[in-house]
Design a protein around this nucleic acid. Sequence first.
DNA 1: GCAAGCGGATAGTGGCGCTATCCGCTATCT
DNA 2: AGATAGCGGATAGCGCCACTATCCGCTTGC
Lengths: 220, 220
Amino acid sequence: MRISELSRSTGVPVPTIKYYVREGLLPPGELTSRNQAIYDETHERRLRLIRALLDVGGLKVAAIAEVLRAVDDPARPVHKVLGAVADQLGTARSEDDDAESLAAGAAVAELIARRGWSAHASDPAARDLARALAAMERVGHGAFRELLDDYAEAAELVARADLGYVDRRVAVDDLVESVVIGTVLGAAVFHAMRRLAHVDASARLFGQDTAADAERKVAD
Amino acid sequence: MRISELSRSTGVPVPTIKYYVREGLLPPGELTSRNQAIYDETHERRLRLIRALLDVGGLKVAAIAEVLRAVDDPARPVHKVLGAVADQLGTARSEDDDAESLAAGAAVAELIARRGWSAHASDPAARDLARALAAMERVGHGAFRELLDDYAEAAELVARADLGYVDRRVAVDDLVESVVIGTVLGAAVFHAMRRLAHVDASARLFGQDTAADAERKVAD
DNA sequence: GCAAGCGGATAGTGGCGCTATCCGCTATCT
DNA sequence: AGATAGCGGATAGCGCCACTATCCGCTTGC
């Protein structure tokens, strides 16, 4: 397969494919001469994965490069890959040591203890959670903490479902890739689902014209 | 309060405040002369909200402008505001009419019917969900659909919690703003929580050194 | 009376995900 | 054998976005 066919079969423009290769997201084609290379279905598959992580997962190109490095690592301990993926999904970078952040960090540590989770408050995900709670506090919604256990319940439900799914796919396909896809795209799926559930809840509470509104909105 | 004090009290640089005013995120200060204006605690509050939606919620400046326009609308039907917010949280823009998208759209319509949700498949959230499922299909994970009902269960749980929270805040504070904050920041909270639950699940499945890994990672 | 700060306007910056162009070479068609 | 389309690789540029820097003439407060 030449690059133009790879482009056609995936819908990704040729210059973009070249760009992905440059950025280390996609392995280069195998050279058959100084300026001719062939690509196969692994490239096609990888390209589709890249687009999914980019368009639906919302990951940055650099983040995808790091995730794929972990995926391609021959000695790939699954939970390390999961950790690499989870880190790229986050936002927190700097240390926050204002009053709200410290309080939020303590609340997160309590939650982890209460839930008996095998995670540490220094985990990037825990830091992001603390960041979000600190932001809630700053806009006068510190009381949102009361929902943490409900959220945790739902998160456990989702995590259990994800694990079961990955477990079922072990024999079928590449385990590591399943974990990556489940984690990243699963987040997008849940995010959309939560919005949909809110639409339903809002319709029940505030009026029954929501579906009609949606119709009209789409017609615009 | 002058602009420099507003900047000091919120941590937002003065030129950035001016930028937000230009973009319509923040109302201008009240002029006391041709080139002097005063700001009050409503500006402070609004500025904190903007930063939360931007930094934690991940909304774009233009999206925040649209959300705040809805919030400030004197005749503000709550479910309209919620709709405006939900739309800004999404990603889908174009029509997808390939095979995967059509199948995914049908799956979403079925889910909505099965759940009895008062939402329509043309709702932006439903489209985003279909988009995510189509992406799953394209990377060979069409079987992920088996998890949809588990996800829906979790989403309902979260939506119920959110509604209860908003209900509790009706008397206390501005209802519309609570809805916005709960929707946007709640998404960030859940996203972090899901990652945390995955860390726990991964630790249980693949090894008990995850907490130690997190410690080491932070030390880097 | 004068430096510091102000509101407002305009232009510039850095990061990111591409995209356009050019080069010399090769595969393929006639 | 010659023409043409396409190739890999390199470099430069683009469009968007969230700021940021600079400048202007004008107050304010010491």
